[in-house]
């Protein structure tokens, strides 16, 4: 194995290429106001069957109204604490155990999960998720529906703007860009939704000034 490593690196160094300057970091400023960002995010999500809601009251009220009798999955962070306000859920599971101890239940029992999101991208209609021990990775992937709460002040124009606004030198275990529910076009190039990931993706936008 080490032999192949040395061999490959030697071959690569065998022919030195003339170094050329790299293009400057890509930026694509669009000059969008907050309202325009919300509008663009909403339109782009809707174009791929994502659902977007401007939240007026609390997320728990919204869930009570739209997911009656569902088995909910919630993390152990702030949202997890607020989950005690929910009245209409059939059951509430807090993701507080390693996956090994309850994997079949996650795949079979849960109807909908609720997570926070790190940020959003207006141009492409994208949610940025940074899973944590409080909100693990599979929450936004396995349940048939995923509800993500997004702070409108965290809407950036695009990926380039987000990267330049934050320090990304240390990456988390997993970082995700999610733009709509799971989809495929593998049969006759015809779009079909909900192949492996969530069939529904609902973004609840919280807009405080």
């Amino acid at each position: 194995m080490t032999d192949s490593r040395a061999h490959i690196l030697n071959r690569l160094r065998h022919h030195e290429l003339t170094p050329q300057a790299k293009a400057p970091v890509y930026q694509k400023p669009l000059g969008l106001s907050k309202a325009q960002r919300i509008k663009s995010f909403t339109e782009k999500q809707q174009a791929v069957r994502g659902e977007v809601v401007l939240l007026n009251g609390s997320w728990t009220d919204w869930m009570d109204k739209h997911f009656k009798d569902a088995h909910l999955l919630i993390g152990t962070g702030e949202l997890g604490d607020q989950a005690s306000d929910l009245k209409n859920a059939k059951a509430i599971t807090h993701y507080d155990q390693p996956i090994e101890s309850w994997k079949p239940d996650l795949f079979e029992q849960i109807d909908v999960s609720i997570t926070t999101s790190h940020a959003g991208l207006a141009e492409s209609g994208t949610l940025i998720l940074k899973p944590t021990p409080q909100e693990p990775r599979l929450m936004s992937l396995v349940p048939p529906a995923h509800v993500a709460i997004l702070d409108a002040n965290r809407l950036y124009e695009n990926f380039a703007e987000l990267m330049s606004a934050e320090d990304w030198s240390e990456m988390p275990t997993n970082l995700l860009l999610i733009s709509g529910p799971s989809k495929t076009a593998d049969i006759e190039q015809t779009l079909a939704y909900g192949i492996h990931g969530p069939k529904r993706l609902i973004t609840l936008i919280v807009n405080h000034d």
């Binding site: 492409s124 994208t126 990456m171 275990t173 997993n174 970082l175 860009l177 733009s179 990931g197």
Partner: peptide, 15 residues
């Protein structure tokens, strides 16, 4: 597509 549904960035195993 302007972007795919998922862009998955993996930097570590489970911590």
């Amino acid at each position: 597509q302007p972007i795919t549904t998922y862009f998955n960035m993996i930097s570590r195993p489970r911590q």
